[in-house]
Nucleic acid binder design. Structure first.
Lengths: 126, 126
DNA sequence: GCTTATCGATTACAGATGTAATAGTTTGTG
DNA sequence: CACAAACTATTACATCTGTAATCGATAAGC
């Protein structure tokens, strides 16, 4: 699968939230957040189809688009490549950077603690 | 500062590890990891200079290159934009994804626990 | 049935990027 | 001093990306 560009990602996000969707529904969903012309959004949809990240089925004259690439798969793959590229594969330094610059909220800490606890339960083979 | 491309980043990494460095030193440092032609590396160095991410001073006929953009600054900025783009700004889901796919090592957990502890010390105003 | 509005498909075009090759300049060497 | 070697600067070029406009088909209304 070819890389998804940043503009394409915004379109994909819409489909992840609600699919299948017509091109116009996607255009409308993006109307608030972006200033994209309808033609632009349709080009992006097309490129996503070409890249295999989105599929469609005909519904009369219009198409109904659905994501093929799932959000969780995208997130995992992008996370891994990002962490590899920028932090040589180590995840803690990323979180540490956030902590140092006050980008961590109470909620983040709580969630991190919880998932650490879960991890330790499942890996109690110390 | 214009965006640093992925190829440019590899060059920057060399300078973060050792600077100042001549173009040839950078070329050699990249010789193992990549198949880049010498000319390619020099083009990338040039683009980094144009983008303001790298500076140089003349040393005879050759230049000595140094990073202007610091690694920690780059990491923080990229992390924030990545987390925003891919995880709507929440960092815990990223770590959770790693945990679910067994991408977390003992050491990662240890580091995370430690930084959480530090965070809680500094934010004991609950 | 014909025309028009509406879809998707195709084409456009400038800037970024990957990956070099060539041109121009300086310097060490004979 | 002249020439060659070694640097950097400039140029090249295909592909990807952002951002649309135009073309061609088709469905809906009159």
């Amino acid at each position: 699968m070819k890389d998804i560009s940043q503009a394409e990602l915004e379109v994909l996000k819409v489909l992840w939230q609600h699919s299948p969707a017509t091109a116009n529904q996607v255009v409308e969903a993006l109307a608030d957040a972006s200033q994209w012309h309808e033609k632009t959004v349709k080009t992006l949809l097309n490129r996503l189809v070409t890249k295999g990240a989105v599929s469609f089925e005909k519904d009369g004259r219009a198409y109904l688009y659905s994501p093929v690439l799932q959000q969780s798969d995208y997130q995992l793959k992008e996370s891994q490549s990002f962490i590899q590229r920028v932090f040589s594969g180590r995840i803690a330094p990323l979180v540490a950077g956030f902590a140092q610059h006050d980008k961590l909220a109470e909620q983040d800490i709580a969630e991190l603690k919880q998932l650490i606890a879960r991890w330790e339960l499942e890996n109690k083979n110390d």
